[in-house]
Every structure is written in structure tokens, then in C-alpha cells.
């Protein structure tokens, strides 16, 4: 079966004159496969390399060595991004555009016709509770509204793979509940969702696969049930995995 995402010995180092050796290693030899249809939680403490991983995957940062592929293709090929929906953290859009204009424009970048782009934009705005704000400029949006707009944008092309960076960020409890429902729905539709999060409870409730990253290294990857001890919560597993890595030389 075709993997949705494959990392192979991915290493990312950034030049830093103050660091010993003149560079800082953000990711060290990451090898990871995300199967199609998985709802995959990508966990790690701050500075573990989660965002760098996502940014390498999307081609914003060029790996020092190793490869990152989406549906078997190099992400630097524009065509590989046709099947991907991405939510950055924090989500960003042109503040002088209205929510409807932004979604329509992003839909057109995926090759949708004007009519379909308009319909898709309005449907998503309704779906994410932003219909009343459709013609308001994004600059006037609250953090939570921007987050919802970012999630809507990531779905505008009905992608097979969703890459979300901290999707629950800035959301109130109702928003989180809605996010959980969406994750279940996307999983049921066979979509692959690869998301990074600090919200372990969200991951525990929504994901069928996880990976934990610490200090740029992959500490653990697979089904949570394979690693959890009887009665153990994901939070405890996370702490155990991260602390073990941090004690390592």
C-alpha cells in the first residue's frame, strides 16, 4: 500500500555561528512512515523538531540529507502539493482580503473553476461557522476565527492528506470538540491526517498512530496501544519517552 508520507534518514541542520561546530541540528536521522488513512499524532516537547519536520516535508526548508516524500513524490514538485491541505501555526492569510475571497483564491490555485471555488468557499465557511463573517476582512478576525479559517483553507481542495500544525491552538472547548469530530470524520473517509500537537488529550482521543520526537530524534512510533502499559495514559507514556531521551548522552 502506498504510504502517505515517508521520511528517510532526514537530517536538518541550520548554520549558527554561536553553536559548537557552526550549526544546530534540528532533526537527526528521522525515518518514519505515515500509512494512508492514518490519523497520526506527531508529538514532542517545544523545540523537539516537529515544525521543522513539517516544514521539510512541505519543502520550506531543504534537508541537509535524507528525503521526505508525499505519496511517493518529492514535495518540491508543485503537483505533489495538489493532494495536500496544510494548516500552519499560526494560520496566516492576507489581512486585507475577506474570508470568502481568500478561500476562493486558494481554491483556484488548486485548479478549481471560479464557480466551484465560490461554492466550495461558501460551503466551508458555513461548515466552520464563519458564514456571517464571509465578507469581513481577515484582519478583523479573532485568533479562534483565524484558526477555523485556516482549517477551512486546508480542506478547500478536498485533500487526501492533511498536514496540520497545532490544529487545536487558540480554540475554545467547543472548537476542540468540533475538531475531534472532524478528525473522526476525516479518518472515516479514508483521509490521512498528520498533525503536530501539544494537546495530548486530543491526540489520545483522535489518533490511531503516534510518533514522539525529542531533541530532533524519533523516540517512538506506532499504535499507542502497543506502547501503553496497563492503565497508563498517553501523557505518562509521553513523559516516559521524552525523559528517557533527555537522559541519554
Amino acid at each position: 500500500m502506498e504510504a502517505a508520507i515517508e521520511f528517510e534518514a532526514l537530517r536538518v541542520a541550520f548554520p549558527d555561528r554561536r553553536a559548537p561546530g557552526g550549526f544546530v541540528t534540528a532533526l537527526e536521522g528521522l525515518t518514519l512512515t505515515v500509512p494512508r488513512g492514518a490519523v497520526f499524532g506527531f508529538l514532542g516537547p517545544n523545540g523537539a523538531g516537529k515544525t521543522t519536520t513539517l516544514q521539510s516535508l512541505l519543502g520550506f526548508v531543504r534537508p541537509t540529507s535524507g528525503t521526505a516524500r508525499i505519496f511517493g513524490r518529492d514535495i518540491r514538485e508543485a503537483i505533489a502539493r495538489q493532494r495536500v491541505g496544510y494548516l500552519p501555526d499560526p494560520p496566516a492569510a492576507y489581512s486585507f482580503l475577506t474570508a470568502r475571497e481568500w478561500l476562493e483564491t486558494t481554491a483556484r490555485w488548486f485548479g478549481l473553476s471560479r464557480q466551484i471555488a465560490r461554492e466550495r468557499a461558501m460551503a466551508l465557511l458555513h461548515d466552520f461557522g464563519l458564514a456571517d463573517a464571509a465578507n469581513r476582512r481577515i484582519g478583523a478576525f479573532s485568533r479562534g476565527m483565524r484558526q477555523r479559517l485556516g482549517l477551512a483553507e486546508s480542506l478547500v481542495n478536498d485533500p487526501d492528506l492533511l498536514i496540520w500544525d497545532e490544529p487545536a491552538s487558540g480554540m475554545d472547548p467547543l472548537g476542540r470538540l468540533d475538531l475531534r469530530r472532524r478528525l473522526a470524520e476525516l479518518g472515516a473517509r479514508g483521509k490521512t491526517v498528520f498533525f503536530s500537537s501539544h494537546e495530548l488529550s486530543e491526540v489520545e482521543l483522535s489518533c490511531n498512530r503516534i510518533a514522539i520526537l525529542a531533541r530532533g530524534r524519533l523516540v517512538l512510533s506506532g499504535c499507542p496501544a502497543d506502547f501503553l502499559r496497563p492503565g497508563e495514559r498517553l501523557e505518562q507514556l509521553f513523559l516516559r519517552a521524552v525523559q528517557t531521551e533527555e537522559k541519554a548522552p
Binding site: A80, R81, P91, Y94, W109
Partner: peptide, 14 residues
């Protein structure tokens, strides 16, 4: 500065 570049370059736009 605004981070829009990440939204933009994640689309099939070279």
C-alpha cells in the same frame, strides 16, 4: 513576516 508564505507555498504554486 505574516507567515502567509507558508500557506502560499503549500499550494501547487511554484
Amino acid at each position: 513576516e505574516t507567515g502567509v508564505v507558508f500557506s502560499l507555498l503549500s499550494k501547487p504554486v511554484s
